Each structure stands twice: as C-alpha cells, then as structure tokens.
Computed example of a mutant assay.
Amino acid sequence: MIMNKLLRLILLVMTGILTYTANAQVDTDQSLNIKQQAIINISAVTAKGDLLKLKGELNRGLDAGLTVNQIKEAIMHLYAYAGFPRSLRGLQTFMIVLDERKAKNIQDEIGIDASLISDERSKYERGKAILEELTGVPETYPKTGYAAFAPTIEIFLKEHLFADIFERDVLTYEERELVTVSVLSSIGGVEPMLRSHLNLCLNVGLTPNQLQQFVGVIKSSVGKKEAKAAQKVLDEILNSRK
C-alpha cells in the first residue's frame, strides 16, 4: 500500500517535471532569442544612421554570440532597403568596433563565409524559385503593378535581391526577414513593403508572438512612432489570418 502511494507520488512528480519542461520549450520557441534581438537592433539602428548607438548594439550583438560574418551579412543585406550610404557607414562603424575589441584582447568568432553557388540555372530563375519558397505562391501569373510598369526592376529584384542576396547562406531566411522588417520599420513610409515582409516572416517560421516581440524591440531601439506604425501593420496581418 505504502509502495503504491510512493510510486503514484513519483509518477505525479515526474509528470509535473515533463509538463513544465514541455511548456518551457514552447515558451522558448515562442520568443525571439538574444541573437535575433541583436540582429533587429543592429539593422534598425543602422537604417536610422545613429552610428553612436550602433556601436553599442554591435558590441551587444557580438557578446550575444553573433559572428563577425553574420553581422557583416546583416549590414550588407540592408543596403537593398536602406541604400548603400547607410550600409557602408554601418560597415565602417563595425570596423571601428572590431578594432576596439581587438585592442582589449577580445577574440570574436569570424564565422562561416557564404557557400559557392553550384546551381546552374540563371540568376533570374534562382531568384524566382527563392521568392516562391518565401511566399509559398508560384510565380506564374501575369505581371501587374510596378512589375508591369517597369519590368526591368522586376528583373533586378529576382536576379539581385533574391538571388545575389537572399541566396547567400550566412544568414537564414528568418534572419534575413528580420533584417528586412527592421529596416522597413525604421525608415517608415513603406507600409505595403512592410506588410509583405511581415507576411514572409510568418511564412518562413517566425511566430505571431515573436513578431509582437519584434515590435517591442523596435520601440526600444528606434522609437515609439516607428513601433506604433509597425504594430498597426502587424495587427492588420494577424487579423486577416484569423
């Protein structure tokens, strides 16, 4: 009798531990990790051009475990949305930060370089395939909107943005989309593009809770105005998916 009670007690305790562990795992999966938050902060502040604040975010990103190449890749990626001047100034600031850390005998991990591309399809076809993977929608419909009005820029988007940039494997699609929505939120006035890329965030595996947290990070890194605008777009997206 006593043994049976003891066994039931042990089983109850073990069940509680397993349940707690499972819930803890769910909570972890539903939150942005420190590296993702660092990517958001670095991208948002670089897009704003606040180089003094960027130095602090770069240090925090390295301390969080981002490699040198991951941060370089994030800053290079954002030029497609914020322009070369912001990207180049970000890279120059990163060089200063790395020199300062080296002077303090801080050894930062360089990380992997982008893999060589072995796909023999044209860049347009590769970019088209990547866009289809991101959106989950085949690119078979007739061109409309800006793509019909200016076909050349549609080619640029496929060949350069989605092939030359998104194809590089230093960052995941999730990380690249976090860079993208961080920049779009920071520069403002591009809500249609922000809406598209927040949808892509959900398509590539980021959760609604993580995107809500993303807005909070934007609020702390660049301001209430930018966060409010991003929240409005995110709310519209999440409501449309119910």
Rank of each mutant, 00 (worst) to 15 (best):
N41S: 14
A80E: 05
S115F: 02
G127H: 03
P85H: 03
S122T: 15
G61I: 02
L51K: 04
G111A: 08
K102V: 01
N41D: 12
E57P: 00
A129C: 02
D113H: 11
T46Q: 10
G56H: 09
K35T: 12
E100W: 03
L116G: 08
S87K: 05
Q37A: 11
L51R: 06
D108S: 14
Q92M: 15
A103M: 10
V45S: 07
D29K: 10
G83V: 07
I106R: 12
R60D: 13
T67H: 07
A47S: 14
K35V: 08
K53H: 09
E125K: 09
S87V: 03
M76D: 08
E73R: 10
D99N: 14
I75P: 00
R101G: 01
I71A: 11
G90D: 10
K123V: 10
A64T: 12
S118P: 00
V97H: 01
I40E: 04
L98T: 04
A114V: 12
V45C: 07
L66S: 04
I96V: 15
G65W: 06
Q37M: 13
L78A: 07
Q70K: 08
S122K: 07
Q36L: 08
G90H: 04
A74C: 05
S31K: 13
Y79R: 12
L66H: 03
Y124N: 05
N41C: 06
I75C: 09
M76I: 12
K104A: 14
D113A: 12
T46L: 10
N105V: 00
D63Q: 13
A80F: 00
A114C: 04
L54D: 04
E57F: 09
E100Q: 15
L88R: 07
G83Y: 00
S31D: 05
I110F: 09
I42W: 04
T67P: 06
D119W: 09
L52H: 11
I71V: 15
A44K: 01
Q92G: 13
T46V: 04
Y81A: 02
S118R: 10
A114Q: 07
E100A: 15
N105D: 14
K72C: 05
S87A: 15
G61F: 00
D63P: 00
Q70E: 15
V45W: 08
R101V: 00
D108I: 01
M95V: 05
H77Y: 04
G83F: 01
N59Y: 01
Q70D: 08
Q70R: 08
V68R: 14
K72H: 05
Q70T: 06
Q107M: 11
I34R: 09
G111Q: 07
D29C: 07
Q107P: 01
D50L: 04
G49T: 00
T46S: 14
L62V: 03
I112R: 13
